[in-house]
């Protein structure tokens, strides 16, 4: 088995998947437990996004996406709004990443850009966006345009443009402002964003790529790609495919991480063995965990599995950095200035 010392195991945990818990103290305690366990990030799901995914599975055979959506599904709103919960959690945690699922179907790119940028500022660079898209949007290139607009908004200000010079009275250097002036097939968004560049440059982008077009999208935009494969061979194939596609698109494969889903059960040794095997067999760069029962299973994992992983040299004992990117070992994107014609401002 070849070992790459530069590779590091990533861990994410899905919270709020069990539904029905609108207790902030519960979530705060859980977040702190996961942070104690040195998880890279926790993920808050979104009922809307789940519905999009559910409808996807329903219609995937015919590749026909229905845009009909009922607002009265029971228990769909028995959940916190994800970004709201994460903003609150950012003040009761210090290092753990905070990722929200947000569907492109039910949101506007300006709101997405602004809210995730705000979360990134509030949390000191720990925000992540799990992008859920629909097959329909993908086929009509709407998802690509959506993400393009969001990134252009995050790049409105150069990192060093906001000088805040009290003496001269210059808050920002106009030369460092890049108003997007986006006019595309699906969106018209002038910009700029009314918040300075996020500490991470861009919040980290997570994506689940399943279909053929989905995988291409994931490799174009995703920095951590989720996979559902439960069998080692299939997972290795997926892993190899994602890395090859990344290289094909001119991206460094080491910067497109693959995280299979894992529901940990059994003895701590058994779980640690599974993780270690998959990691070294290049079937996983990390895992996104769906616990059977919260907070119990999470506490057991942190108390019993994490020490094993740490002892085996797989998992960090301390966070490497202050931002989610640093902990994931991902580079910070530079501003890609899109100098479109600026008439006036």
């Amino acid at each position: 088995m070849t070992t790459d010392p530069a590779r590091r195991l990533g861990l994410g945990a899905l919270v709020h998947g069990s539904g029905g818990q609108l207790d902030f103290a519960f979530h705060a305690d859980l977040a702190r437990t996961l942070e104690r366990g040195r998880f890279d990030a926790l993920f808050v799901a979104d009922a809307d996004a789940d519905a999009v995914t559910a409808q996807e599975h329903e219609h995937s055979s015919t590749e026909h996406f229905s845009t009909e959506y009922s607002r009265t599904e029971p228990s769909r709103t028995e959940r916190f709004e994800p970004l709201t919960l994460l903003a609150a959690l950012s003040l009761v945690t210090e290092r753990i990443g905070l990722a929200a699922t947000a569907a492109t179907t039910y949101n506007h790119p300006f709101h997405i850009a602004r809210k995730f940028a705000s979360l990134d500022h509030i949390s000191g660079g720990r925000a992540g966006w799990n992008i859920v898209i629909s097959e329909h949007e993908l086929l009509h290139r709407q998802s690509d345009e959506f993400v393009q607009v969001v990134k252009a908004l995050w790049d409105s200000f150069d990192d060093d443009a906001v000088v805040r010079d009290k003496e001269s009275g210059r808050y920002y250097d106009p030369a460092g402002l890049h108003t997007p002036h986006h006019r595309g097939e699906h969106f018209t968004v002038r910009g700029p964003l009314n918040i300075s560049r996020p500490p991470q440059g861009h919040p980290v982008i997570f994506q689940a790529g399943s279909s053929e077009t989905g995988r291409e999208f994931a490799v174009r935009h995703g920095e951590v790609v989720f996979v559902e494969e439960q069998e080692l061979g299939a997972a290795q194939d997926f892993y190899a495919d994602i890395k090859a596609r990344a290289a094909g698109q001119g991206r460094d494969p080491a910067h497109v991480l693959v995280w299979p889903r894992l529901t940990p059960y059994g003895s701590p040794e058994r779980i640690a063995d599974h993780i270690e095997t998959w990691f070294h067999a290049r079937a996983a760069d990390g895992f996104h965990l769906a616990f059977l029962e919260l907070p119990g299973s999470a506490e057991e994992f942190v108390d019993h599995v994490v020490p094993l992983l740490q002892r085996r040299g797989l998992l960090r004992t301390e966070y490497e950095g202050t931002t989610l990117r640093e902990n994931l070992g991902l580079p910070r994107p530079a501003v890609r200035a899109r100098h479109l014609q600026e008439t006036g401002r």
Binding site: R114, K115, S118, V162, R164, I195, S196, R345
Partner: peptide, 22 residues
């Protein structure tokens, strides 16, 4: 515009409010 702060560089208010709530 380059001489003012609030309109250019402020938190989205509901995100901020949730943080203050905690």
């Amino acid at each position: 515009l380059s001489r003012v702060s609030v309109v250019n560089d402020s938190f989205e208010p509901t995100t901020l409010l949730a943080a203050l709530a905690a």
